[in-house]
C-alpha cells in the first residue's frame, strides 16, 4: 500500500505523457523526467479502438 506521505518524502521522478510543454517545465525545474511522445492507439480509428478494448478486457 502506497501513501501520498511516502511521496512527500521522496524526490519526484515523473513520466510525462502528452503535452511536451509540461516535460519542458519539469526539465526547467531539474526534475528527472521521461517524456512519452504519445500517439493515439489504433491510429485514432474508433472502430479499431473498440476492438482493441474488447481484446484487452
Amino acid at each position: 500500500m502506497s501513501s501520498p506521505n511516502d511521496l512527500f518524502n521522496q524526490p519526484l521522478a515523473v513520466i510525462n505523457i502528452g503535452l511536451k510543454i509540461f516535460a519542458e517545465a519539469l526539465q526547467a525545474q531539474a526534475v528527472p523526467c521521461v517524456h512519452v511522445d504519445w500517439r493515439p492507439p489504433a491510429g485514432g480509428n474508433p472502430d479499431l479502438l473498440a476492438v482493441l478494448a474488447r481484446l484487452n478486457s
Binding site: 511521496l7 521522496q10 515523473v14
Partner: peptide
C-alpha cells in the same frame, strides 16, 4: 528508462 518514477503527468 526511469525506474524510480513515482508520478505520471497525463495530458493526452
Amino acid at each position: 528508462l526511469l525506474p524510480g518514477a513515482n508520478l505520471a503527468l497525463i495530458s493526452v
